[in-house]
Design a protein around this nucleic acid. Structure first.
Lengths: 166, 166
DNA sequence: ACTAAAAGTTAGATATGTCTAACAAATCAA
DNA sequence: TTGATTTGTTAGACATATCTAACTTTTAGT
């Protein structure tokens, strides 16, 4: 029985970005090239090569010299988690807070690297909650109220319409 | 008329952390030492000295050799903004999502560096909204529903207990 | 099959931000 | 006031992550 406890495998923001880019570029079984990653992340190829070496050492991707890149199962799992964090944040910023898509996207791209699993989970639940109540069809009334509040800065919705007929 | 347009003055995460630490340590006119900052941020003194030089060059703090540190007005304004972002995020994570204080604190510390002004503003409004509706005394009903949903994963509040007796 | 273009790699520079070790200044205690 | 302790600084190492320039390998066109 090996007593070497594996290190917790934390990735830097940069490393998560590379992994996510490869994951998204790969799509369903597609082939990923250094070139594509460089383009997607707007960095030069040597930067990608360095990152690739890094992630390969961590067992998250495989790479044969002068060949193509692919994610290991472990890499896919982690990349999917990053994407999920991104999605949840984007939804919250855009759908709930009403941040425009472009800004929501940028914020999500940065913030996704830093929220804890618990916060992510709760945010996920929150969005689920928003989408389900009172029905999947329309936003809950309180969200409409919030939007009004954002727009007008006024608090007269509740005062006037206190007991709402749902 | 000088045609040198001033650069937009963006701070790195690290720089914001140093500025915030000094701001909080200074409190109301208190004196801040390199030592204190190092302790607060859990770094060594030479790291603080490097950061101090950096922030002083940007006109955010002043520092006389072997003496104490103080924030300029500009520095105070920026530090206050960072603190505000922190507060807003903490409140949201803790009060709305129900994340435990420690985690909410950690998440806020990281995320505070990355949310855009607009997202911060909306989050601020959101929290204000939560605190005001239906009254300043108690949480809005939908938030109770969300908590239930978090706890039970069930969607039967609206269906079964539509009009909840609080 | 050969050559030119494209893609990948290496080496080495730069920037940031951290550290340790050694040194300098200030403060404190006797 | 002087010597020890604390505090601040400098120099230099290291890690990460980026870049450019030069090189190698692969691919594609003819």
């Amino acid at each position: 029985m090996s007593n070497k406890s594996k290190p917790p495998l934390t990735l830097s923001q940069s490393q998560e970005d590379y992994l996510k880019a490869m994951y998204l570029l790969a799509g369903c079984g597609g082939i990923v090239h250094v070139r594509d990653v460089a383009e997607k992340l707007d960095v030069k190829k040597p930067s990608v090569v360095a990152a690739v070496k890094n992630l390969a050492d961590k067992g998250l991707i495989t790479h044969e010299r002068y060949g193509s890149l692919s994610l290991t199962n472990k890499g896919k799992i982690i990349a999917a988690e990053v994407c999920e964090r991104h999605r949840v944040l984007f939804e919250f910023f855009n759908k709930v807070l009403g941040v425009d898509k472009e800004t929501a996207e940028k914020d999500a791209c940065l913030v996704e690297h830093y929220i804890s699993p618990d916060t992510k989970r709760r945010l996920f639940k929150f969005i689920e909650f928003v989408h389900r109540f009172p029905s999947e069809e329309k936003d809950p009334r309180w969200l409409d109220h919030f939007r009004s509040y954002m727009a007008t800065g006024r608090t007269d919705i509740c005062a006037g319409t206190k007991e709402k007929t749902v």
